[in-house]
Write a protein that binds this DNA or RNA. Structure first.
Lengths: 183, 183
DNA sequence: TTGTGTGAAAGTTTTCACAGCA
DNA sequence: TGCTGTGAAAACTTTCACACAA
């Protein structure tokens, strides 16, 4: 965002203002990963961005598969922000024959029965946007095909081995965080 | 979930197993809000659920408006989980004439120009699912009509007065949390 | 002058361990 | 016996304040 604004460096206090914290918090946090700021001018935005990508391990690029191309899956396919974080959405799967074979943007929708091709294609991350009733079964298949991380949009707990990381987004739970502050 | 399984009580260690933490963490956390467990049998699920709703202030019911009925908004409309958290999605707005007037489930899609009726209707929470380009402008209108909390699906920072609470869900950022653990 | 990096202090959270209740 | 609630200890995080680099 800062690079797009044509800026080349930024101070810890300016970062703090943007994300709503304090300058010393920013400096302390960065310092745990090494000293990459310059007294007087602050942090080089390009260098900082690369450092953070490295810390989060999103610098090598990750191929992503989308499972389920309903309304939510279609919204995911239309989303343009993945490249910013080193992701490449390369394939989508669905079980509906009306959808299979269609091409949305760069991505062709394949039959969900082909899901075990993920290992061969070196895809380690999946976005799960299937109905809740199918979520656990699809997850089991994903685990078998060697998936390492799942972004899950079903409002349910998924059972997976400890080696697989799941992040669940449940709209209602996020919404439920608001009333506490609204009073 | 536990109630649906027909259970009436649960121990701190069983809760801990489900959500992946320790028994003493559960007990300590609950104890800050008062002592509502019973030695020997644990926590009464119904009582616990009501206590948590009260703590989070989701026990009085909140009317919710959806802004934007594209793919993502449609997915939100199809979602059945809001009632569990005391929310009632009562209205949706869109700017597309093809969508205005249609009824999806219980909700009729209204013209986005009618958005200032929210105050009159006593709606304090909104889900924002409009294109990024419209997000800030719609947010300004929402703020004017007295909205107190926004669940924002646009991948951007929204400027609002301090009295308005925003929770932003950016799929790419959530996805970016996975590679660190995948290695 | 502006603004980093960092020891040390203050503050908070997590963990432990156990008295005591159903 | 099974399980809670909670003081006290340990661990961790945040804040401060300042030496020093560009």
């Amino acid at each position: 965002m800062l690079a797009a604004q044509g800026k080349t460096n930024i101070s810890s206090s300016a970062i703090a203002d943007i994300i709503g914290t304090n300058a010393w918090q920013i400096r302390k946090d960065f310092s745990y990963f090494g000293a990459f700021g310059k007294p007087g001018s602050g942090y080089d935005i390009d260098k900082l961005s690369k450092q953070i990508s490295k810390i989060l391990k999103i610098n090598k690029g990750h191929k992503v598969a989308l499972i389920g191309v309903g309304n939510l899956g279609s919204a995911v396919l239309a989303y343009k922000g993945f490249a910013n974080y080193g992701f490449d959405l390369v394939v989508a799967f669905d079980s509906d024959p009306k959808r299979i074979g269609k091409k949305l943007g760069e991505v062709t929708i394949e039959n969900i029965s082909k899901i075990n091709s993920l290992k061969k294609r070196n895809i380690t991350v999946a976005i799960l946007a299937v109905p809740e009733s199918a979520a656990q079964q699809v997850t089991d298949t994903l685990v078998k095909t060697g998936i390492k991380g799942i972004l899950n949009f079903s409002p349910c707990y998924l059972q997976v081995p400890k080696s697989v990381r799941i992040i669940t987004i449940d709209i209602a739970i996020d919404l439920a965080r608001l009333p506490y502050y609204i009073g």
